[in-house]
């Protein structure tokens, strides 16, 4: 049977075609749900619809990137905290065209690194390879004091640690501490303050 046979079409092709066929975000979201049960497991993320600024493709990459930088561990990570949505919203509401270009480029560059290193798009790599690609990119860009990437990473961190999840589940935050205790054993406080 040929690859075009609708009966044998693989999951990957289906999803890719669906993007063209359905177009709208609603269709993508409907499809995204089934991608989780994909035979490729982790390798295929939930497909994101286009954001308010980012295209659907970049939104999907962004989600993978923030999930890799701040994953779920014993506490929820960046995706649970909505960091990808936050960054998209910042591009729409806050960023100037130059900044948007910088962010697009960071996202695309990471994807190009994936293709160069592993021959496939970032979103289709297994978790370990994604991690290696982003870890190396992060080390290289910060080593070069690369400003666009620094801004990107800063926004990921602020998006996470100032979200309710990041500030209150991962770290601690008190809107009204009520008192200043100048010297306390760290063990008594527990984790770092979000602010």
């Amino acid at each position: 049977m040929s690859d075009n046979d609708p009966m044998t079409i693989n999951r990957r092709t289906l999803l890719r075609q669906a993007v063209y066929m359905v177009g709208g975000a609603a269709g993508l979201n409907a499809l995204a749900a089934c991608s989780d049960q994909s035979a490729e497991g982790d390798a295929i993320p939930r497909l994101s619809g286009p954001g308010r600024y980012f295209t659907g493709v970049r939104m999907t990459r962004l989600k993978v990137i923030v999930d890799t930088i701040i994953p779920d561990t014993d506490t929820p990570g960046a995706v649970a905290a909505g960091v990808h949505t936050f960054i998209d919203q910042m591009m729409a509401d806050w960023a100037e065209p130059d900044t948007r270009d910088q962010f697009d480029k960071v996202i695309d560059e990471i994807d190009e690194r994936a293709v160069a290193a592993h021959g496939d798009r970032l979103t289709r790599l297994p978790q370990e390879q994604r991690f290696a690609v982003i870890r190396d990119y992060d080390a290289e860009k910060l080593g070069q004091r690369n400003w666009p990437y620094r801004r990107f990473k800063d926004l990921v961190l602020v998006g996470y640690y100032h979200s309710q999840i990041g500030a209150t589940e991962e770290l601690q935050y008190e809107l009204i501490p009520g008192e200043w205790k100048a010297c306390l054993p760290l063990a008594e406080v527990g984790s770092a303050w979000a602010d």
Binding site: I70, T73, F131, I134, R150, Y161, A192, A194, D195
Partner: peptide, 19 residues
């Protein structure tokens, strides 16, 4: 605080643990 993570290399569970 966590802001130090923006300028230092490192991602993933180890970054979270550190911050």
């Amino acid at each position: 605080d966590w802001r130090r993570g923006g300028g230092q290399a490192g991602i993933g569970a180890a970054l979270k643990q550190d911050l």
